[in-house]
Design a protein around this nucleic acid. Structure first.
Lengths: 259, 259
DNA sequence: CCAATTAGTATCAGTCTGGTACTAAAGTCA
DNA sequence: TGACTTTAGTACCAGACTGATACTAATTGG
């Protein structure tokens, strides 16, 4: 824990300070913008990553995109942006009580020219995982508002950017947060887990190495159940149960640098 | 490149879609909030990470914190939030032309109860690096507005959260973005580079392994210059010059998972 | 000239990766 | 029933990588 300790730097640096706030905000309360949370719900489907989209109203006639990410403006009852995202997910997935979100993270904030379906000026992108198998309950007759896509239709530029940022964020988190486990039900086979990793990483993994490293890390715990999926030997079911904090490697990975 | 391909999921899923935007926004334009960019400028100083803070005006008498992150509300001339951050950095560091920012990333957006020095409702945290040695030019007589801190004084809760998120973000980026190099001048010794890695990682590194891995990754290029820093053998200067795209490891790092 | 200090290298044992090839247990089909 | 296919899971091994120890190299300060 070296971190940032404080106390002005020893003499020589500019320690004199005077109240400065040179830019006069347009209004006393400061600049106000229309804000929204744009939600990227991700779930593995058919060996790919799927995203949940809703029908876009198309603000004006002739608008191209007819699908959009679930989104909404924060409400006073939302204590945090994450809470706002959960509320939006509950509406979109028709889980009014508790939407099946197992992981949630921010995925960029955008306030540029790119168009938002609701003409929102500032978008906060939030990405969340929905475990495989946690399908939303059927919407009340004909009221289903969206669908899971594995091939993305045209979106508003802003939503396209949010989606790209969300996928980048979940991929970046794969090593430091148990996102892969969050994309699976409570019990799963090691082949299923490996497939999720392969989806997120974008390449195949070596089976023996994957299991060896996983078991060595004491992240999973075998159950007594086995699942027979059609033909082939049944697979043992595991659950995510991180045990001992293993000593992690101290070295630096220079091979991951890009740009 | 597997990614998210599209086309609604095969039959069985809810593909029916109707225009839904059930929540009526308070205003036709949607909910508007006061927004600001809170900037975390980081630079290595004396073997630690230092952050640049400005005197806080203290909105009302009796306010505790007297230091704050540089911040500002977006201007119409800011094409993006990053541009806004660069403008704020230019003012704070008195580099009106081009502030010496070498890397820039978002570090969370906050819209919760935690107090902002300007009573802003929504804060976009942005973290940027200033290379060691790139000191801001002396401010016009007595007008210096801030200082670099290695020990953090009390801040408004919102700024404390932004700072924590910024440090977490830069640490998370260390393996995938050349942040360590961005915290150094154009040429540097390998010991200096190792020290920056140690500051960011929070623990010591093995010298031989560090150099071996760094050289193997073809990330740096030796110059003809050597620097003698007081006693001890002079060190060769290197520059960041990533060459060949080396085949990166395909395995999974389970040892980095936390929580 | 010698000690202290910092830069940089050599060697080596233990570990980890990923390739190949194997065994195990189920279904399918003749 | 018995071969064949399919998926799960393991064994072995050569090569690569890590980190510990110990070394050499070059400079400053006495």
């Amino acid at each position: 824990m070296p971190a940032y300790p404080f106390a002005p730097e020893s003499p020589g640096s500019a320690t004199v300070a005077s109240p400065v706030r040179v830019e006069p905000p347009p209004s006393p309360r400061g600049w106000a913008a229309s804000c929204a949370v744009d939600l990227v719900l991700l779930s593995p489907r058919q060996g790919r990553l799927a995203v949940f989209l809703e029908r876009s109203t198309g603000e004006r006639a002739g608008d191209e995109p007819s699908w959009a990410l679930p989104w909404g403006t924060p409400w006073p009852t939302d204590a945090t942006l994450d809470d706002c995202a959960r509320r939006i997910a509950a509406r979109a997935l028709h889980h009014e009580d508790a939407p099946p979100l197992t992981w949630l993270a921010q995925a960029g904030t955008f306030a540029d020219d790119r168009q938002h379906p609701g003409r929102i000026e500032l978008s906060v992108g939030i990405v969340a995982t929905v475990p495989a198998g946690a399908r939303q309950p059927d919407a009340p007759s004909g009221e289903s508002s969206g669908a899971w896509f594995t091939e993305v239709p045209p979106l508003h530029d802003r939503h396209r950017a949010v989606l790209d940022a969300a996928v980048a964020a979940i991929r970046l988190s794969i090593d430091t947060a148990p996102v892969a486990f969050r994309l699976l039900p409570a019990t799963f086979t090691l082949s299923e887990l490996q497939q999720v990793y392969e989806i997120l990483l974008g390449h195949r993994l070596h089976k023996a190495s994957f299991r060896r490293a996983l078991l060595a890390a004491s992240l999973v715990e075998a159950t007594d159940d086995w699942r027979s999926e059609g033909r082939g030997r049944p697979a043992q079911l595991f659950r995510y149960a991180p045990r001992r904090r293993r000593p992690r490697r101290r070295g630096v990975r220079f091979d991951l640098l890009r740009g």
